[in-house]
Design a protein around this nucleic acid. Sequence first.
DNA 1: AATTTATTAAACCAATCGGTTGACTAATAA
DNA 2: TTATTAGTCAACCGATTGGTTTAATAAATT
Lengths: 119, 119
Amino acid sequence: MDEVFQALSDSTRRQMLRDLAASDRTVSELAAPHPMSLAAASKHIRVLENAGLIRREVEGRTHRCHLEAGPLAAAHDELGFYEQFWTSSLNTLDRLLREEAAQETESSRTTSDPQPKDD
Amino acid sequence: MDEVFQALSDSTRRQMLRDLAASDRTVSELAAPHPMSLAAASKHIRVLENAGLIRREVEGRTHRCHLEAGPLAAAHDELGFYEQFWTSSLNTLDRLLREEAAQETESSRTTSDPQPKDD
DNA sequence: AATTTATTAAACCAATCGGTTGACTAATAA
DNA sequence: TTATTAGTCAACCGATTGGTTTAATAAATT
């Protein structure tokens, strides 16, 4: 997971993923839009590959790259955990407290007492 | 966005966000579970703050940290773009081609996307 | 007033990052 | 055969990262 988010933290690499979403691309094709050496782009692609975000098929002297969505799904899912915090800002506190109460498995930490807001 | 994914790329920081999802925490409370100096944890918290993922309220000598979900929503949304690639592997190519064709007009960005679920 | 507590600041370190250049390999084209 | 093309490798560079330790600051406690 570290590697996935790390790979996503560079806009060059995110652009490459976007391009791959449109269609498979060779290394040169992926590199073309970016103002850097081919070697630098090649390293970016390697980072994406090591994170499992792309797969590579060697065809003769060209390498055809293909988007691999699994890790993206995992990352998406991990962020989905926080969905409660951006859907309905006012509802959030209420929902959280209820879920926390329902999940009364480990409450050894100093959880602040839910104080009734009389607004 | 770079900063957000960069912040998310460290498991210590992801754990801190998880903790903050349960409740607001002070710097010491956030640092406690992690086998490192308080100064190191403090730097992690700074990274999260700079990425806009947490807000800090200074109360006397303690700093109370609060989860800020906006950037998480943005990241979630960005990854959501690739949802087509992990939902129904065989259907993907077909759907992509159709959506690409439909987007050729680019007239309205309505969120209505009724997909006939034939599983 | 003196001390403890919560936190940051500063200097340092080894490792990694994102980029460069130049040499190299292997497949294709002339 | 000889270039040309596609791509990687290796060495190097400056900046950043994630950690350390030792102060420093400011608030709370005694």
